[in-house]
Protein backbone atom coordinates (compact mmCIF):
# COMPACT_ATOMS: atom_id res chain seq x y z
CA UNK A 1 0.00 0.00 0.00
CA UNK A 2 1.29 3.43 -0.89
CA UNK A 3 1.53 6.25 1.58
CA UNK A 4 -0.68 8.54 -0.47
CA UNK A 5 -3.24 6.99 -2.79
CA UNK A 6 -5.09 9.28 -5.16
CA UNK A 7 -7.62 7.37 -7.21
CA UNK A 8 -9.74 8.69 -10.09
CA UNK A 9 -10.10 12.12 -8.48
CA UNK A 10 -12.37 14.58 -10.22
CA UNK A 11 -13.03 18.15 -9.21
CA UNK A 12 -15.15 20.85 -10.80
CA UNK A 13 -15.65 24.49 -10.04
CA UNK A 14 -19.12 25.03 -11.43
CA UNK A 15 -19.04 23.90 -15.05
CA UNK A 16 -15.31 23.99 -15.18
CA UNK A 17 -13.75 20.58 -14.56
CA UNK A 18 -10.23 21.24 -13.30
CA UNK A 19 -9.28 17.68 -12.35
CA UNK A 20 -10.39 15.06 -14.85
CA UNK A 21 -9.55 11.79 -13.17
CA UNK A 22 -6.23 11.90 -11.39
CA UNK A 23 -4.44 8.71 -10.33
CA UNK A 24 -1.27 9.02 -8.33
CA UNK A 25 0.38 6.83 -5.73
CA UNK A 26 3.17 8.16 -3.58
CA UNK A 27 5.52 5.89 -1.67
CA UNK A 28 7.01 6.82 1.72
CA UNK A 29 10.06 9.04 1.33
CA UNK A 30 9.27 10.04 -2.22
CA UNK A 31 9.69 13.64 -3.26
CA UNK A 32 7.25 14.53 -6.00
CA UNK A 33 7.33 17.73 -7.99
CA UNK A 34 4.13 18.72 -9.73
CA UNK A 35 4.74 21.02 -12.65
CA UNK A 36 2.52 22.46 -15.32
CA UNK A 37 1.02 25.67 -16.64
CA UNK A 38 -1.18 27.77 -14.39
CA UNK A 39 -4.71 26.48 -14.61
CA UNK A 40 -3.56 22.92 -15.17
CA UNK A 41 -5.00 21.93 -11.79
CA UNK A 42 -1.79 21.32 -9.88
CA UNK A 43 -2.59 23.53 -6.90
CA UNK A 44 -6.15 22.23 -6.80
CA UNK A 45 -4.86 18.66 -6.65
CA UNK A 46 -2.64 19.55 -3.71
CA UNK A 47 -5.50 21.30 -1.91
CA UNK A 48 -7.75 18.28 -2.43
CA UNK A 49 -5.27 16.00 -0.69
CA UNK A 50 -5.79 17.63 2.70
CA UNK A 51 -9.41 18.50 2.15
CA UNK A 52 -9.15 22.24 1.56
CA UNK A 53 -11.18 21.52 -1.56
CA UNK A 54 -13.91 18.92 -1.72
CA UNK A 55 -13.67 16.38 -4.51
CA UNK A 56 -16.56 15.43 -6.80
CA UNK A 57 -15.50 11.87 -7.47
CA UNK A 58 -12.73 9.41 -6.66
CA UNK A 59 -10.92 8.86 -3.40
CA UNK A 60 -7.86 10.09 -1.55
CA UNK A 61 -6.12 8.31 1.26
CA UNK A 62 -3.08 9.25 3.26
CA UNK A 63 -1.52 6.58 5.52
CA UNK A 64 -4.89 4.96 6.07
CA UNK A 65 -6.79 8.21 6.67
CA UNK A 66 -9.57 8.59 4.13
CA UNK A 67 -10.65 11.96 2.79
CA UNK A 68 -14.25 12.72 3.77
CA UNK A 69 -16.16 15.92 4.37
CA UNK A 70 -16.93 15.61 8.09
CA UNK A 71 -14.71 17.36 10.58
CA UNK A 72 -13.56 14.16 12.31
CA UNK A 73 -12.23 12.54 9.14
CA UNK A 74 -10.71 15.80 7.97
CA UNK A 75 -8.87 16.22 11.25
CA UNK A 76 -7.48 12.68 11.11
CA UNK A 77 -6.31 13.30 7.56
CA UNK A 78 -4.79 16.68 8.34
CA UNK A 79 -2.82 15.22 11.22
CA UNK A 80 -1.10 12.97 8.69
CA UNK A 81 -0.37 15.58 6.09
CA UNK A 82 0.85 19.12 6.63
CA UNK A 83 0.66 21.98 4.17
CA UNK A 84 2.83 24.97 3.36
CA UNK A 85 1.32 27.82 1.41
CA UNK A 86 2.57 30.30 -1.12
CA UNK A 87 1.53 33.18 1.14
CA UNK A 88 3.01 31.68 4.37
CA UNK A 89 -0.22 32.33 6.30
CA UNK A 90 1.44 32.69 9.65
CA UNK A 91 -0.85 33.90 12.42
CA UNK A 92 0.08 37.58 12.62
CA UNK A 93 -1.05 38.03 16.21
CA UNK A 94 1.30 35.35 17.49
CA UNK A 95 5.09 35.13 17.70
CA UNK A 96 7.02 32.60 15.64
CA UNK A 97 7.23 30.32 18.67
CA UNK A 98 3.51 30.66 19.41
CA UNK A 99 2.71 29.95 15.79
CA UNK A 100 4.49 26.63 16.09
CA UNK A 101 3.02 25.86 19.52
CA UNK A 102 -0.62 26.73 18.90
CA UNK A 103 -1.89 23.75 16.94
CA UNK A 104 0.07 21.30 19.07
CA UNK A 105 -1.70 22.60 22.15
CA UNK A 106 -5.12 23.10 20.62
CA UNK A 107 -5.37 20.08 18.34
CA UNK A 108 -3.13 17.51 20.00
CA UNK A 109 -3.64 18.85 23.54
CA UNK A 110 0.13 18.76 24.08
CA UNK A 111 1.04 20.37 27.44
CA UNK A 112 2.63 23.79 27.04
CA UNK A 113 6.20 22.93 28.13
CA UNK A 114 6.37 20.07 25.64
CA UNK A 115 4.85 22.16 22.86
CA UNK A 116 7.39 24.86 23.62
CA UNK A 117 10.29 22.40 23.53
CA UNK A 118 9.02 21.04 20.23
CA UNK A 119 8.64 24.57 18.84
CA UNK A 120 12.23 25.39 19.81
CA UNK A 121 13.44 22.18 18.20
CA UNK A 122 11.55 22.79 14.97
CA UNK A 123 12.58 26.44 14.73
CA UNK A 124 16.18 25.33 15.27
CA UNK A 125 15.73 22.82 12.50
CA UNK A 126 14.81 25.57 10.03
CA UNK A 127 17.59 27.78 11.39
CA UNK A 128 15.35 30.23 13.26
CA UNK A 129 15.78 29.21 16.89
CA UNK A 130 16.79 32.78 17.70
CA UNK A 131 13.53 34.20 16.27
CA UNK A 132 11.26 32.41 18.74
CA UNK A 133 9.81 35.65 20.10
CA UNK A 134 9.65 37.60 16.83
CA UNK A 135 6.29 38.46 15.30
CA UNK A 136 5.73 37.52 11.65
CA UNK A 137 5.89 41.15 10.51
CA UNK A 138 9.38 41.36 11.97
CA UNK A 139 10.58 38.51 9.76
CA UNK A 140 11.57 38.44 6.10
CA UNK A 141 9.46 36.44 3.68
CA UNK A 142 11.98 33.64 3.64
CA UNK A 143 12.05 33.51 7.42
CA UNK A 144 8.24 33.53 7.57
CA UNK A 145 8.09 30.61 5.20
CA UNK A 146 10.61 28.71 7.29
CA UNK A 147 8.49 29.33 10.40
CA UNK A 148 5.51 28.00 8.43
CA UNK A 149 7.51 24.86 7.66
CA UNK A 150 8.44 24.49 11.33
CA UNK A 151 4.78 24.95 12.25
CA UNK A 152 3.74 22.14 9.93
CA UNK A 153 6.59 19.87 11.07
CA UNK A 154 5.70 20.31 14.73
CA UNK A 155 2.52 18.34 14.09
CA UNK A 156 4.74 15.43 12.99
CA UNK A 157 3.00 14.72 9.69
CA UNK A 158 3.95 11.76 7.51
CA UNK A 159 3.86 13.93 4.40
CA UNK A 160 4.07 17.60 3.51
CA UNK A 161 2.26 19.42 0.73
CA UNK A 162 4.12 22.46 -0.57
CA UNK A 163 2.06 24.83 -2.70
CA UNK A 164 4.47 27.07 -4.62
CA UNK A 165 6.31 27.81 -1.41
CA UNK A 166 8.87 30.12 -3.02
CA UNK A 167 6.65 31.94 -5.51
CA UNK A 168 5.92 34.88 -3.22
CA UNK A 169 9.55 35.37 -2.25
CA UNK A 170 12.12 37.82 -3.50
CA UNK A 171 14.72 35.96 -5.59
CA UNK A 172 17.47 36.25 -2.99
CA UNK A 173 15.24 34.61 -0.36
CA UNK A 174 14.27 31.57 -2.43
CA UNK A 175 17.40 29.58 -1.70
CA UNK A 176 17.11 29.62 2.08
CA UNK A 177 13.64 28.07 1.84
CA UNK A 178 14.65 25.54 -0.79
CA UNK A 179 17.62 24.54 1.37
CA UNK A 180 15.24 23.67 4.20
CA UNK A 181 13.00 21.69 1.86
CA UNK A 182 16.01 19.90 0.45
CA UNK A 183 17.11 18.94 3.94
CA UNK A 184 13.66 17.54 4.69
CA UNK A 185 13.83 15.48 1.53
CA UNK A 186 17.24 14.17 2.53
CA UNK A 187 15.86 13.18 5.93
CA UNK A 188 13.25 11.04 4.21
CA UNK A 189 10.14 13.23 4.52
CA UNK A 190 7.52 12.51 1.90
CA UNK A 191 6.97 15.67 -0.09
CA UNK A 192 4.50 16.71 -2.74
CA UNK A 193 5.35 20.06 -4.13
CA UNK A 194 3.86 22.27 -6.76
CA UNK A 195 6.82 24.27 -7.97
CA UNK A 196 8.20 26.47 -10.69
CA UNK A 197 11.79 25.82 -9.60
CA UNK A 198 12.74 23.43 -12.35
CA UNK A 199 16.35 23.05 -11.33
CA UNK A 200 15.28 22.22 -7.80
CA UNK A 201 12.79 19.67 -9.10
CA UNK A 202 15.53 18.09 -11.18
CA UNK A 203 18.04 17.94 -8.32
CA UNK A 204 15.87 16.87 -5.44
CA UNK A 205 12.79 15.04 -6.65
CA UNK A 206 12.36 11.34 -7.14
CA UNK A 207 9.52 11.78 -9.60
CA UNK A 208 8.09 14.64 -11.58
CA UNK A 209 4.42 14.92 -12.48
CA UNK A 210 3.55 17.10 -15.46
CA UNK A 211 -0.08 18.16 -15.36
CA UNK A 212 -1.95 19.44 -18.36
CA UNK A 213 -5.64 20.28 -18.72
CA UNK A 214 -6.59 18.56 -15.47
CA UNK A 215 -4.78 15.30 -16.19
CA UNK A 216 -1.45 13.75 -15.32
CA UNK A 217 0.07 14.18 -18.73
CA UNK A 218 3.49 12.74 -18.10
CA UNK A 219 5.14 11.24 -15.05
CA UNK A 220 8.57 9.82 -14.37
CA UNK A 221 11.98 10.37 -12.83
CA UNK A 222 13.33 13.89 -13.41
CA UNK A 223 15.99 12.72 -15.86
CA UNK A 224 13.30 11.26 -18.08
CA UNK A 225 10.79 14.08 -17.77
CA UNK A 226 13.30 16.87 -18.24
CA UNK A 227 15.82 15.02 -20.42
CA UNK A 228 13.48 13.20 -22.74
CA UNK A 229 9.95 14.68 -22.73
CA UNK A 230 7.57 12.40 -24.60
CA UNK A 231 4.72 14.75 -25.39
CA UNK A 232 4.71 18.01 -27.36
CA UNK A 233 2.87 19.73 -24.47
CA UNK A 234 5.67 18.98 -22.03
CA UNK A 235 8.32 19.94 -24.58
CA UNK A 236 6.54 23.21 -25.14
CA UNK A 237 6.16 23.80 -21.39
CA UNK A 238 9.82 23.13 -20.72
CA UNK A 239 10.85 25.17 -23.71
CA UNK A 240 8.84 28.13 -22.48
CA UNK A 241 10.67 27.99 -19.15
CA UNK A 242 14.00 29.09 -20.61
Amino acid sequence: MSLIEITEVRKSFGDNEVLKGIDLNVEPGEVIAIIGKSGSGKSTLLRCINGLETINAGSIQVAGAQLATDELHLKALRLKVGMIFQGFNLFPHKTAGQNVMLSQMVVKKTPKPEAEAMAKKMLDRVGLGHKFDAYPDELSGGQQQRVAIARALAMQPVALLCDEVTSALDPELVQEVLAVVKELAAEGMTLLMVTHEMRFARDVCSRVVFMHMGRVHEIGPPDEVFGDPKTPELRQFLGAQH
Binding site: L52, R78, G82, F85, N89, P92, S103
Partner: peptide
Protein backbone atom coordinates in the same frame (compact mmCIF):
# COMPACT_ATOMS: atom_id res chain seq x y z
CA UNK B 1 -9.56 38.15 7.95
CA UNK B 2 -7.72 36.67 4.94
CA UNK B 3 -8.86 33.25 3.76
CA UNK B 4 -5.31 31.98 4.21
CA UNK B 5 -5.75 32.18 7.97
CA UNK B 6 -8.69 29.77 7.79
CA UNK B 7 -6.80 27.48 5.44
CA UNK B 8 -3.60 27.43 7.46
CA UNK B 9 -5.40 26.70 10.72
CA UNK B 10 -7.59 24.08 9.05
CA UNK B 11 -4.60 22.34 7.53
CA UNK B 12 -3.10 22.13 11.02
CA UNK B 13 -6.12 20.12 12.09
CA UNK B 14 -8.11 22.75 13.98
CA UNK B 15 -11.87 22.45 14.10
CA UNK B 16 -14.10 25.39 13.32
CA UNK B 17 -14.57 26.56 16.89
CA UNK B 18 -10.85 26.25 17.56
CA UNK B 19 -10.11 28.29 14.45
CA UNK B 20 -12.54 30.97 15.57
CA UNK B 21 -11.27 31.10 19.11
CA UNK B 22 -7.51 31.02 18.52
CA UNK B 23 -6.97 32.43 15.06
CA UNK B 24 -9.90 34.38 13.64
CA UNK B 25 -11.55 36.18 16.56
CA UNK B 26 -8.35 37.53 18.13
CA UNK B 27 -7.55 39.20 14.80
Amino acid sequence: IPKGQWEASASLGMGRLQQMRHVILPQ
